[in-house]
Design a binder for these strands. Structure first.
Length: 845
DNA sequence: ATAGGGTTAG
C-alpha cells in the first residue's frame, strides 16, 4: 500500500481551506442534457462519519466531514483525470475504510474526470490494464462501475465517441466500447451501433466490427450482417476475417454465420471457398444444418454434379431436403440446361407433394418454367402455369416474366403480349423488369416499331399517373386508349397500362430500346440523352450498343470515335466494346482499322478473348495480300500465346483459300483438296509451319513437311509457292532450288504409308498441277546437282537434321544422327522461273 | 435467415 501522503504530494490541487465548501458546486447527476449547474445535494445529516485514526489527514481536526469528503473526491477526480487509476482506487478504498458510504463518495466524484481519464489512457494505448484495475477495484468496493459515469460523463464520452467516429479511429472506438460493455454500461447510448459498424465496414476493418458487435446480446445476428455487408462490397477477404473473428468467443458453432459466409462466397464468385468452409465443418465433425446445405448448394448451383452430391449427402445424413433444397436443385438443372433431369426432379417434387411431405411454391413453378423458357419449350412452360393454378399457387411477377420470356425466346411476340395482358387481368403488378422482358421480346424478333409503340405508351401512361395521379378524367382516358389503339397496342393492354404501370425505366430498358433503333444512330443518341434526364447513366452495354448502331449505319469512323466518347464519359471501353468496334470494321471491309483497334486494345491492356480473335480473323475474304495473311497469322500466334486453343476454323479457311489462289486458274479440280478438313488437334503444327514460312525474315527456299498429313503438306507447299509468287511480283526473283523434306529413313527402313502419301500428293501437285520440274533424292545431301545452296535450310524454330552446306551431320558428335537420311524433293530454280513467268499477275480474289 | 426474371461481341 502506498502512502496517501505521497499521493497528495503529487496531486496538483489546492488545499481545501482555499475552497469554500459552500461554493463548491457540481453538475446534476440526473440531468441528461442540461449543462447548467446546480448546488450539490446536501449529505444526509444522519450520517455520522467515522474516520479511522490511522488516517491522519482524514481525522485532521481542521476540516469537517463534508470538507474532507469534498477534498478527497476532488483529489480522486483529479487522479482519475490523469489516468492514475491505481491511486484513485487507493483513495476510494481509504474513504470506504473510513466508514463513508461509497455512494456518498461517488456522488461527489467528478465522473466526467473519470471518463476523460479513461479517454486519456485510451489515447495513450494503455487502456485495458487501467480499466481492468478500475473495474476490479470498484467492484471490490461493492459498486457497479457503471455508476462511475453520470450524465455529464456520458456526454463527454459521447463527444469522444463522435470524435473517434469522425477521425475513423475504429480500433480505439472498439476498445472503448469493449471496456464500457465490460462495465455493464449500456454502450448503445454512447453512439449509434449502426454508425460504428458501418464505419468499420467502410474502413475495411472486419475485426473491429466484430469486436464491437460482440458486446451486444444479439452478437450473432450482428456478426452475420457484418459478414454479409463485406460480401455485398465484394470483399471476400474481409468477410472471411469477420467470419473467423466471429468464431472467437463462441461456445458453439454458429450455423447462421456459416451459411452467411457461404452465401458471401457465392456473392464474391468464389464458390470453391464455400466448399472449403463446408469441408472444414465436416472435418470438425459438425453436422451442418439445412440452411448451410441449401446455401452451399445454391452457391455451387452452376455445378450440377456437386449440387447433386450435396443433395445426396443430405439424404445420407437423414436430413429432410426441404422445398428450398429442391428448388435449388431445379435451378442447378436449369443452369446446366438439363431439361430432362429438371423434368424428373419436378415430377419427384410433385410426388413428394402428393404424399404431403412438401408444398411446391412459386419458386418451384417459376424455376421449372424458366427451364422450359430457356429450352424454347414454350408449350411446356404454359402447362406448368396450369399445374400452378390448379394447385392454388398464385403466379407472381417473376412467374409471369418467365412465361413471357418463354414466348419471347420462341419468337412469339403476340403470345408474349397476350400473356402480359393476362397478367394484368389476373391482378399481378408488373414491374420494370417485366416490361423490359416484353420490350426485349419485340426486339429479339426485330419488331422494332412495336417495341417503340409499347415503350411510348408505357412512358405516356406512366407520366400521367405520376403527374395527375388517378385524377385522370374518363374522357381523357378514353382518348388516350383510342390513341394507343391507333398505335397498334391491344385495347385491353392500353386500358390496363393507363391504370397501373408506372414508368420507371432502368438502364436495361434504354439499352433494349437503343437496340430497337436498328441502324438509326440519331434515334439511339436521342434515347441516350433521354436516359440521362431520368438520372440514368449509360453503362458499358449502352455504349457497345451505340457502337453497333452507329457502325451498322455505315459510319465506321464515328463508331470508332464512340470508344473515345465512352472513355471521356468515365467508362473505360471493355473487351466487348472493342470487339464490337472491330466487328464493324470487319463488316465494313476496313481491315486496317480493325488491326489498329486490335493494337489499341493492347495499349489499354484490354485482353482480347475468343470472340475478339474470331471476329478479327473472320473476314478472311478481305485479306488478299501476303501482308494481310501475315497479319492474320500474327493474330493467330497472339491468340495461342494468350492460351486459346488453336481450333480456329476461320484461319484455316483463310490459309486454304489464300493458298489455293496460287493455282486458281491452273487447276480445275481445286475443290478436291480444299474440301478436306484437317482435324483440329493437328492444326497447330500446320499453322505454325505456315506462319514460319510466310515470315518476311524467312528467305530460305526450304520446306519441312514432316509430321503433316498430305492435305496439310499440300497447303504448306502452296503457301510457300504463293509467297514466292508475291515476292516475284514485287521484284524478287528466285535464286535457288526449292527443297522439300518429306521424311527421314533409318537405314533401310521403308517409308511409312503416310510419307508415301505426302510424297505422292506433293509430287502430283508440283508436277501435274503446276508443271514444275521435280526430282527426288533419298540419299545424303551433296549428291544432287549442287548450285551452291546459299539458302540455308536451317529455319528458326524447326529442328532439322540438315546442316549447312548440305553435308549431313558429318561433324556431329551424336551417333544417332549419322544414319539418318532425308527423303526430299527438289524443285529446280529454272522450272520455278518458268512457272512464275507464265502468270506474273496474281489472281485477284 | 434460404432461392427466381430482362440488356452487350462470334
Amino acid at each position: 500500500m502506498r502512502d496517501a501522503l505521497s499521493i497528495l504530494a503529487s496531486a496538483t490541487i489546492l488545499p481545501p481551506s482555499a475552497t469554500p465548501s459552500g461554493d463548491y458546486r457540481r453538475r446534476n447527476r440526473h440531468s441528461t442534457t442540461s449543462t447548467t449547474t446546480k448546488p450539490r445535494p446536501k449529505p444526509n445529516p444522519k450520517q455520522k462519519p467515522q474516520f479511522p485514526a490511522s488516517s491522519p489527514l482524514l481525522s485532521s481536526p481542521r476540516w469537517d466531514h463534508r470538507q474532507r469528503l469534498t477534498y478527497y473526491s476532488q483529489l480522486a477526480s483529479k487522479l482519475a483525470e490523469d489516468g492514475r487509476f491505481e491511486d484513485f482506487l487507493m483513495i476510494a478504498e481509504s474513504v470506504v475504510a473510513s466508514g463513508v458510504k461509497i455512494s456518498e463518495f461517488l456522488a461527489l466524484l467528478k465522473s466526467e474526470n473519470v471518463a476523460s481519464g479513461i479517454v486519456r489512457v485510451l489515447r495513450e494505448g494503455k487502456l485495458s490494464a487501467a480499466v481492468d484495475l478500475l473495474n476490479n477495484g470498484i467492484r471490490k468496493l461493492g459498486v457497479e462501475p457503471v455508476l462511475l459515469f453520470d450524465a455529464v460523463a456520458v456526454e463527454s464520452l459521447k463527444a469522444e465517441c463522435r470524435r473517434l467516429l469522425k477521425c475513423g479511429e475504429v480500433e480505439r472506438l472498439a476498445s472503448l466500447m469493449e471496456i464500457f460493455a465490460g462495465f455493464q454500461f449500456p454502450i448503445k447510448e454512447l453512439v449509434e451501433p449502426s454508425e460504428v459498424i458501418n464505419l468499420c465496414i467502410n474502413k475495411r476493418n472486419p475485426t473491429a466490427a466484430i469486436r464491437y458487435a460482440q458486446n451486444f446480446s444479439h452478437a450473432e445476428v450482428l456478426c452475420c450482417s457484418i459478414i454479409l455487408e463485406f460480401g455485398k462490397k465484394r470483399d471476400l477477404l474481409s468477410a472471411l476475417k469477420a467470419f473467423e473473428a466471429s468464431k472467437q468467443n463462441m461456445s458453439s458453432p454458429n450455423m447462421h454465420s456459416y451459411r452467411t459466409i457461404i452465401d458471401v462466397c457465392g456473392l464474391c464468385g468464389d464458390y470453391l471457398k464455400s466448399r472449403t468452409i463446408y469441408e472444414g465443418l465436416l472435418a470438425e465433425n459438425i453436422t451442418p444444418n439445412i440452411y448451410v446445405f441449401n446455401s452451399l448448394m445454391n452457391v455451387n448451383s452452376h455445378d450440377l454434379n456437386y449440387t447433386l452430391d450435396i443433395y445426396k449427402k443430405m439424404e445420407k445424413l437423414g436430413m429432410m431436403a426441404d422445398i428450398t433444397s429442391h428448388n435449388i436443385l431445379l435451378k442447378s438443372c436449369c443452369l446446366a440446361a438439363k431439361v430432362e433431369l429438371a423434368q424428373d426432379t419436378y415430377k419427384r417434387i410433385r410426388e413428394l407433394e402428393s404424399k404431403g411431405v412438401l408444398k411446391l411454391d412459386d419458386f418451384t413453378y417459376s424455376t421449372i418454367i424458366k427451364v422450359f423458357a430457356d429450352a424454347k419449350m414454350w408449350k411446356h412452360a404454359l402447362e406448368i402455369k396450369e399445374d400452378m393454378v390448379l394447385s392454388g399457387v398464385i403466379p407472381n411477377t417473376v412467374t409471369w416474366s418467365s412465361l413471357i420470356s418463354a414466348c419471347a425466346n420462341a419468337g412469339l411476340v403476340e403470345k408474349a403480349i397476350v400473356l402480359f395482358d393476362e397478367m394484368l387481368q389476373a391482378g399481378a403488378q408488373p414491374n420494370t423488369h417485366c416490361f423490359n422482358t416484353l420490350l426485349h421480346a419485340c426486339v429479339e424478333v426485330c419488331q422494332f416499331d412495336r417495341a417503340f409503340r409499347l415503350f411510348q405508351c408505357w412512358k405516356e401512361k406512366g407520366f400521367q399517373q405520376t403527374i395527375s395521379n388517378d385524377k385522370l378524367k374518363n374522357a381523357d382516358k378514353f382518348e388516350a386508349v383510342d390513341r394507343m389503339t391507333e398505335m397498334g397496342v391491344p385495347h385491353r393492354l392500353c386500358s390496363h397500362l393507363t391504370m397501373r404501370v408506372p414508368f420507371r425505366p432502368t438502364i436495361s430498358t434504354y439499352n433494349i430500346m437503343m437496340k430497337a433503333c436498328g441502324t438509326d444512330y440519331y434515334r439511339a443518341k436521342d434515347l441516350m440523352d433521354e436516359m440521362k434526364t431520368f438520372g440514368l447513366t449509360p453503362n458499358h452495354i449502352s455504349w457497345s450498343i451505340m457502337i453497333d448502331v452507329c457502325g451498322g449505319s455505315g459510319n465506321v469512323l464515328d463508331a470508332i470515335q464512340i470508344l473515345t466518347s465512352m472513355r471521356e464519359s468515365g467508362i473505360q471501353p471493355d473487351v466487348i466494346a472493342y470487339t464490337t468496334a472491330i466487328k464493324i470494321c470487319v463488316e465494313r471491309k476496313k481491315p486496317k482499322l480493325a488491326f489498329m483497334l486490335f493494337a489499341e486494345m493492347k495499349k489499354y491492356q484490354i485482353k482480347p478473348n475468343m470472340v475478339t480473335y474470331n471476329t478479327i480473323l473472320r473476314a478472311r475474304s478481305i485479306y488478299g495480300s501476303l501482308q494481310g495473311v501475315q497479319q492474320c497469322l500474327a493474330v493467330y500466334q497472339h491468340m495461342r500465346k494468350a492460351g486459346y486453343k488453336p481450333n480456329d476454323y476461320y484461319l484455316k479457311q483463310l490459309i486454304e483459300d489464300w493458298c489455293e489462289g496460287v493455282i486458281q486458274t491452273e487447276c480445275q479440280n481445286k475443290g478436291q483438296f480444299a474440301s478436306h478438313t484437317t482435324d483440329f488437334g493437328r492444326q497447330s503444327l500446320l499453322l505454325e509451319k505456315v506462319t514460319e514460312y510466310l515470315k518476311d525474315s524467312n528467305g530460305s527456299l526450304f520446306i519441312d513437311l514432316r509430321g503433316l498429313t498430305k492435305v496439310e503438306a499440300r497447303l504448306v507447299v502452296l503457301a510457300v509457292l504463293r509467297k514466292i509468287k508475291e515476292k516475284y511480283a514485287a521484284g524478287n526473283s528466285v535464286k535457288d532450288d526449292l527443297f522439300i523434306i518429306l521424311g527421314q529413313q533409318q537405314h533401310g527402313a521403308r517409308a511409312t504409308r503416310d510419307e508415301i502419301g505426302v510424297r505422292d500428293a506433293v509430287t502430283r501437285l508440283l508436277q501435274h498441277d503446276l508443271a514444275l520440274q521435280v526430282y527426288e533424292t533419298g540419299s545424303r545431301s551433296g549428291n544432287e546437282p549442287s548450285r551452291g545452296n546459299q539458302g540455308s535450310p536451317r529455319s528458326s524454330g524447326l529442328d532439322l537434321e540438315v546442316v549447312e552446306n548440305g553435308s549431313l551431320a558429318e561433324t556431329s558428335e551424336s551417333p544417332t544422327r549419322r544414319p539418318i537420311a532425308l527423303q526430299r524433293l527438289v524443285v529446280t530454280r529454272e522450272s520455278l522461273h518458268h512457272w512464275l513467268q507464265r502468270r506474273t499477275v496474281l489472281s485477284k480474289r
